[in-house]
Design a protein around this nucleic acid. Structure first.
Lengths: 199, 199, 199, 199
DNA sequence: AAATAATCGAGACGGTACGTCGGGTCTTGTC
DNA sequence: GACAAGACCCGACGTACCGTCTCGATTATTT
């Protein structure tokens, strides 16, 4: 996972040292994985990265900014393209939950959301990120629209919102091990509705 | 709102003083309202309530327990019963958002969720609370089922989950001012689906 | 010298814990003795005393205040009373230099003077202390006046100032090992003058 | 006072740029004058001089060395030659105090003494400087000896020491505004003594 | 004329210390 | 035995400087 080079990093002149940046992000991830959000402090990250606190503060103005960078370094979970909307969305949720569960990402993102509740910078950063992701997820809906699977007047953003909300709440309440049938049911409700008239 | 009695509370003998408990809960709510989650500390609550820190720790083992108590003291938002599921759910969301937006409740609940990300006791307490609320919301669905509005095989818990998730995410991302049309659209998707075949 | 009790001090209620105060003063003295003024930091004192920094700041608003307390805890060097002014003053300087040289006091006082050059609180504290000591030394002169050794119109404060100044400069320039003959000569100049007419 | 050239100094090739040296010494003096010793940092000097820190460290190995250079750039206070020892010495003290009080020199020298208490290089530099000055002041005594005013066996160094010590202590305890009568009295004690027999 | 070498400003680096805040524990004296 | 009060140790906060390093640019000296 990298750890800091044992022999000590130095400045490489009047510009950012990418080794330090990497070491700090690695350390942040490791601290979060080992000590959780409650043990996640700039102090601890600096210690682990063998970096000075000012170096961290220089590049990441807040804990949230650091968390966001850590999160964004992770591999993205992308939405499958099976030609069928339900499968796409179920697959996406399945992949996302697995990613969150099996890597540090889940904890990172949970922490980021928590941080955003007390830090407006974090809130802004998270909002920006969420918007981007919503557009991304929205594309699946648009694809389905193009295939004629989804009614053309449907607002893809709202649908993406419903799906993302469902994912967030599972993350925040430790339900990432939800069984696939339940996920599929939830997705199906959104796609087909629950109305008696229409089923 | 209560504030602490200016002249100082004393012990009332070898049992819990309910005035102190009230003063502490009042203070907690006030601190949260004025300083937000980031300014919410046991220290600040004690100061404001003119209470000793040990008095707080004696009765509430963690910040989360205190938050939960504060939240549960609040008036509940209940689901309207209009005879129409869509109106019921939209009304519920509307009321809930207004409640969260206009009282301290929103901040309290946000804080509770945030706290639950670093404190397993908080997480457990929140999970318990959420389960209770899910059942509560689920009843609306069951009523609609009874009216024949909703297909009988529908899992009310999952629907309640979708609705609650949507609400949570709006709370956590500062979107409690969502316009009503959007809420109605989201609810309609869950009820009627987005599939082209069925609209 | 005390060191901190290994098992940890606790609060003894809502009042100052004298054990902590002692441990902190002991630690301050030890740090100064071992690391000198440049290594003398509140941080280091806290570490050594196993005390929290806030505990130190609670009772000593500045490094200078702590230094002053440490210095005043030391045994005082008093002026001998031999019945002869020259012997009294030479004896005083000899004792003072030995005291400064052989105990931590010299370093403490040096540090205090240094600190006073950048901290006005320290300067005020030092000025107050110096005034007290000047009166003290002045008494030797007054005794000599009473014996008829010293002219009655002589300003004892100014004489004390000359002597103290001489001592300070030796302290500040690492000349505490000045040989006794030189001290005696200096004292003799002040008592008998250097004028050709009068010797 | 110079300030740094607004448009930026550059290297003038493979040798020391005297403009930079001047700018740094000017800046050091200005910082000391405006912020005092506590605000005197290499960082602040570099900022003010628009110089790189390594440029400072290249030429002055320590804060003390820089201070010493700043001090030595100042105009010297010389001892008057009135043909009368008392007037010479009183005049010297008067001039010295005025110089210290009215220019940055007083602060510079105070700082230098303070610095010498924690930095052995500074101590050595200061000792060297003091020795030089002592010889200088000693010449006044020697002149008086030559005139027959002072007994031939008197050690001019010790007398100079007494006078310089008196000056130092006034500097270090913020008493540069001492009235002239007091100075004269102190000088007179050293010259004529305080003994009853001889007055 | 080209290559070398030392200097310059700039500013990042790993660190240490600053002075403050809050956490959770403890004890005292009053009710 | 509960209460207000507040001290205790601890650890994190975000900032200021420390002294070192490396850069790219500049320019006098050497080839």
């Amino acid at each position: 996972m990298g750890e800091a080079a044992g022999t000590g990093r130095k400045s490489i002149g009047a510009r950012r040292n990418p080794d330090s940046a990497d070491a700090i992000l690695d350390a942040a991830e490791a601290v979060l994985a080992e000590a959780g959000y409650s043990g996640f402090s700039i102090e601890a990250v600096a210690r682990r990265a063998r970096a000075g606190k000012p170096t961290i503060y220089r590049w990441w103005p807040s804990k949230a900014a650091l968390l966001l960078d850590v999160y964004q370094r992770q591999k993205r979970v992308d939405v499958p393209d099976t030609g069928n909307l339900e499968d796409d969305l179920v697959g996406f949720l399945k992949n996302l939950f697995a990613h969150w569960r099996l890597t540090a990402s889940g904890n990172v993102f949970r922490s980021l959301i928590a941080e955003a509740q007390s830090d407006s910078h974090a809130a802004a950063a998270l909002a920006g990120y969420a918007t981007g992701r919503r557009a991304h997820t929205g594309q699946v809906i648009e694809r389905a629209k193009a295939r004629g699977e989804v009614a053309p007047e449907v607002d893809a953003g709202i649908v993406a919102d419903l799906i993302a909300s469902y994912a967030w709440r599972h993350l925040l309440t430790n339900r990432l091990d939800e069984d696939q049938a339940t996920l599929r049911t939830a997705v199906r409700y959104v796609i087909s509705g629950i109305s008696a008239r229409r089923r």
